[in-house]
Design a protein around this nucleic acid. Structure first.
Lengths: 187, 187
DNA sequence: GTTTTTAGATACACCTGTGTCTCTTAAGGA
DNA sequence: TCCTTAAGAGACACAGGTGTATCTAAAAAC
């Protein structure tokens, strides 16, 4: 229903795509955001986290799956929902949390945990933002391109950014090799 | 004109905000994307790149300026333009390049160049994606939050991600400290 | 089996933006 | 000054979505 509506996250389009009448939608989801959340929950199937035995392959495979399965919806989210949620005062982050099945583990956490178990990583990431970095970058890419990105980009994110970073800074408070000051001096 | 239209990147709203008639807009910008590009060029003032003497402060200051000056417009871009440009087959990246005053240097390039001159960095970033990483992450954050982000986030992007990464991997082809395989096996 | 609930289908008035056309008025150039 | 060009204002039919109301037919509950 979301899939082909595309520029149609409207009661009208949803009703047509769902093969039902607008009145039915209004009865069940009187407010727009309820309708959209329900529609998204319907299509936001969980993505299987790969377990290949290597952090790099896990990461690349996972990003590829997300790229394949979420690109269309992300394009719609970025475009159509953002302004509605902005008017409501809510954000896409909140929407993501809402339909993202609160409590479910972030996909890259599992990948990282296994890498630590195998000894492939010596230390866990210094902050949640690092764990979610590849997904954030992929999402950014999908939003900017309004759809799928290429495998090249995914490989670059993993090989040039994520893996080097994971192996770089053990702790946010201890300086890295070059002695840059890492501290929260600003609030 | 873009500023208060907000949910109004329409001929109608632009005309009203500009205090003119719709017909005038149609005459000068017969196609919507021409109108939007012109409107954006009007408000997309260049951002002054700071020169504080330190890479870290430069980066944080620059991100803060972008955060302050672009947040509103980014929110609109992400929301309203994405779907129009998607329908056209174009992307936000292309739009950014178009209004981003082609040929103008990416803001973080100047910051990096100075850091290299000072000897603060030993090697240039291994790829353009690394140079643009903080801006990409900030943009992602602004899109997801439909507006400004906080200083904390900016500091995290710089201290936890960008600086450690810049000091980590000299070359995409030589392994880093932990010997992860960095190669483009897929493509 | 009867009653209650719900789905599905119209129909309605309404609003907002679209793209085009016309007319008048104000400026600018020669 | 005259003449050309564009600005500004308004009208137009039209398309699409909105939110509500009403009706019938099909399920579900009892």
């Amino acid at each position: 229903m979301v899939r082909d509506g595309y520029s149609g996250l409207t009661y009208e389009a949803v009703a047509k795509a769902a093969g039902t009448a607008r009145a039915v939608l209004y009865r069940r989801w009187p407010q727009r955001h309820l309708l959209l959340e329900a529609a998204l929950r319907r299509f936001w199937a969980p993505i299987e986290v790969p377990d290949t035995g290597s952090l790099r392959a896990d990461a690349i495979t996972l990003l590829e799956r997300i790229n394949d399965e979420r690109a269309d919806l992300i394009a719609v989210l970025g475009a159509k929902l953002a302004d509605y949620y902005r008017d409501t005062g809510a954000t896409l982050t909140e929407l993501r949390d809402k339909i993202g099945m609160a409590g479910r583990e972030a996909p890259f956490d599992a990948v990282l945990a296994r890498a630590l178990d195998r000894g492939e990583l010596r230390h866990p990431p210094a902050a949640p933002r690092i764990a979610s970095l590849p997904l954030d970058l992929l999402r950014h890419e999908m939003m900017m391109r309004s759809g799928r990105t290429t495998v090249d980009v995914i490989v670059e994110i993993v090989d040039l950014i994520w893996l080097p970073l994971l192996n770089a800074s053990p702790h946010p408070t201890s300086g890295s090799a070059s002695g840059i000051a890492i501290a929260r001096q600003r609030g």
